[in-house]
């Protein structure tokens, strides 16, 4: 067996030649770790993010759900309302019963449906705009460098404005209601999907595209026959992911007057109707979980087709 030692001539030559490079790399790695740690500490100090407050709150995380289904009777405007087994099938006038919590289920259902439709509209509109913009925004497909640059910056602006801010701006001209929310989400979706689509285009195989160029195909033909067949499954997968995100966003956007279940949630919070707040939260949670699970399955089917 060989007994490798640091005296090995090849190893010593390696150390002489590359030793300084290795030392620099090690220093750089530690420098990165130290910088991130410093940033973390600064952020923690400024936000009172401390281990003791987290530890103190940790045991109480499950409390809400525990109390929710507890047997102990509770009355009055408690911030954690209680469903009690003794009353659970009581009428609409009996606190702690399902009927008492969900007595406005018809209103909630209509608003949840509206929220969902807002997300559908915003996703479709954003997908269409992103689809149209992503090809001229792809460096490898467009020879007009300034155009690529301009559309890329435009997409950046569209996705960096926080949606809530966009919704607030749009509530002003379009009034309180779903329209402002839909437009805010559609704009954000355009920015987000446009960037992702352009990256998929960038990674598309060059050979089919070259094939279409060689037959004398126009730019449109290159995109339609060389690029789109390759990237479409990826586009659809990203669009579904975006739809999930939009369903969640549309509940939040209601808080600034942009329609849907969020507006109702804000109203019930404002009036301290805790049973209704909890009822709405549970419904939103249910909707999001069901949608995420279904869309995840469909997405995996699309991703499978990519390979």
């Amino acid at each position: 067996m060989l007994t490798p030692t640091v005296q090995d001539p090849a190893y010593r030559r390696f150390q002489q030649r590359f030793g300084p490079i290795l030392r620099t790399r090690l220093l750089q790695a530690w420098g990165t770790v130290a910088s991130v740690a410093l940033l973390f500490v600064i952020a923690a100090v400024w936000t009172d993010f401390a281990p003791d407050t987290i530890l103190a709150g940790l045991p109480r995380v499950g409390e809400y759900f525990g109390k929710l289904l507890s047997i102990e009777p509770s009355r009055g405007a408690d911030t954690v309302p209680v469903l009690a087994f003794g009353h659970i099938f009581g009428g609409t006038k009996e606190p702690q019963s399902l009927a008492y919590w969900f007595y406005r289920i018809d209103v909630y259902a209509a608003l949840l449906w509206q929220t969902l439709q807002m997300a559908v509209l915003a996703t479709v509109l954003g997908f269409a705009a992103a689809f149209a913009l992503c090809f001229p925004a792809t460096g490898s497909l467009s020879r007009l460098r300034p155009m690529v640059f301009l559309i890329r910056r435009l997409l950046e602006i569209l996705r960096t404005i926080p949606q809530v801010v966009l919704a607030l701006i749009l509530v002003w001209p379009f009034g309180i209601g779903p329209l402002a929310g839909i437009l805010a989400m559609a704009i954000h979706t355009t920015g987000g999907l446009g960037k992702l689509f352009a990256e998929l285009n960038e990674n598309a195989d060059r050979r089919p595209i070259e094939g279409i160029v060689s037959v004398g195909g126009s730019w449109l033909a290159q995109i339609r026959y060389g690029v789109v067949p390759q990237v479409l499954p990826g586009f659809l997968s990203y669009a579904l992911l975006r739809f999930e995100i939009n369903v969640r966003s549309s509940t939040i956007l209601g808080f600034v007057g942009a329609g849907g279940i969020g507006m109702e949630l804000k109203r019930t919070i404002g009036f301290n109707i805790y049973e209704e707040v909890s009822a709405i939260c549970i419904l939103i949670l249910l909707m999001v979980v069901v949608l995420d699970l279904t869309s995840e399955r469909i997405r995996h089917a699309f991703i499978g087709r990519m390979q």
């Binding site: 050979r207 094939g211 279409i212 060689s214 037959v215 004398g216 026959y225």
Partner: peptide, 28 residues
């Protein structure tokens, strides 16, 4: 380009399209 047709070492077909559409691409 249409009048001087290329044949490539790696074929440069569009993998995700069917054979017929690939051939019809010659008409683009």
């Amino acid at each position: 380009r249409a009048r001087t047709a290329m044949i490539f070492q790696q074929f440069n077909l569009v993998n995700r399209l069917d054979v017929l559409t690939n051939v019809l691409c010659g008409r683009l």
